[in-house]
């Protein structure tokens, strides 16, 4: 049997090209992940934050409804950040509070305090994909992200919206099979790792929601926070706006403030 050398060359070439392609995909993933790590690092050490905000729900006909709440967050490097959400308005849910202790690889631990009952209820649910109090934000969108929650791909660099700032655009694919999304496309500003925009693609790869952030302010000389963010549902036309009236860092909160017994306060 005679070896056919004429075939060998193109096959080698093809293999070479394929491996180049794979390498390119590898570097894309690595570069995407690098950016995600940079975003994560940028926020390290903020310790805790307290924010007061108004949540405005607007439907496609332009009708609005409003909620006021306070969100406290405690940095937690091994495991996700703990959060405490307390409602101030409307009156009938005033004082209602939700405490979340994220559990990597398991259902988050959540406690809910309803003033009408004066009892604390522990809620078990593995669902993170649901809407947050009827808004266009889901728990998943609001929850603290870990770098390992996603696979990454680098897309391109382009201007962040209309300004002169340049953004890296990366895709991140959730590892959780119960996620509502197949993919999120994130615009990260190259100079300060601020997230300007996220496109959420649903399970059928159709654009579902667009998150946009504006009015960034610098806190403690290090932490950028937007004063207004919006989540627009591209399929229903509804939009939810979070408008921050006050953000404070390093207020001295500790794990004790994020214990379920503090919910009644």
């Amino acid at each position: 049997m005679r070896n056919d050398y004429r075939l060998l060359f193109p096959v080698t070439l093809l293999c070479g090209l394929l491996s180049l392609q794979l390498q390119a995909a590898d570097t894309g993933a690595a570069k995407g992940r690098e950016i995600a790590v940079a975003v994560e690092n940028r926020d390290l050490g903020y310790s805790d934050s307290v924010a007061e905000l108004t949540m405005i729900l607007r439907n496609r006909s332009g009708d609005e409804t409003r909620r006021e709440l306070e969100i406290s967050i405690l940095e937690n490097r091994d495991g996700g950040d703990k959060s405490l959400i307390r409602f101030d308005f409307p009156a009938d849910i005033r004082g209602t509070a939700l405490l979340t202790h994220p559990q990597p690889d398991d259902a988050d631990e959540q406690w809910l305090y309803l003033p009408a009952y004066t009892r604390i209820k522990r809620i078990s649910s593995r669902n993170k994909s649901g809407a947050f109090v009827g808004s266009e934000f889901s728990f998943e969108d609001l929850a603290d992200k870990e770098v390992d929650d996603f696979r990454y791909a680098y897309v391109r660099a382009e201007a962040c919206g209309e300004g002169i700032l340049m953004c890296d655009v990366i895709d991140r694919m959730p590892e959780d099979t119960h996620s509502a999304y197949s993919r999120q496309r994130v615009w990260v500003d190259q100079s300060a790792q601020r997230i300007f925009r996220i496109d959420y693609f649903d399970r059928k790869e159709a654009l579902l929601k667009t998150f946009t952030a504006k009015d960034f302010r610098l806190y403690e000389d290090r932490y950028w926070r937007p004063l207004e963010v919006a989540m627009r549902n591209q399929q229903s036309g509804n939009v939810t706006i979070l408008s921050y009236s006050r953000i404070q860092f390093q207020t001295g909160l500790s794990a004790a403030n994020f214990h379920r017994n503090t919910l009644r306060d």
């Binding site: 849910i93 309803l114 649910s125 649901g130």
Partner: peptide
């Protein structure tokens, strides 16, 4: 008030969609 707060709990625990 009770009804509203209970309903809030329900709304918060629903899965996607």
């Amino acid at each position: 008030t009770t009804a509203a707060q209970q309903f809030l709990l329900y709304e918060m625990s629903l899965p996607f969609g």
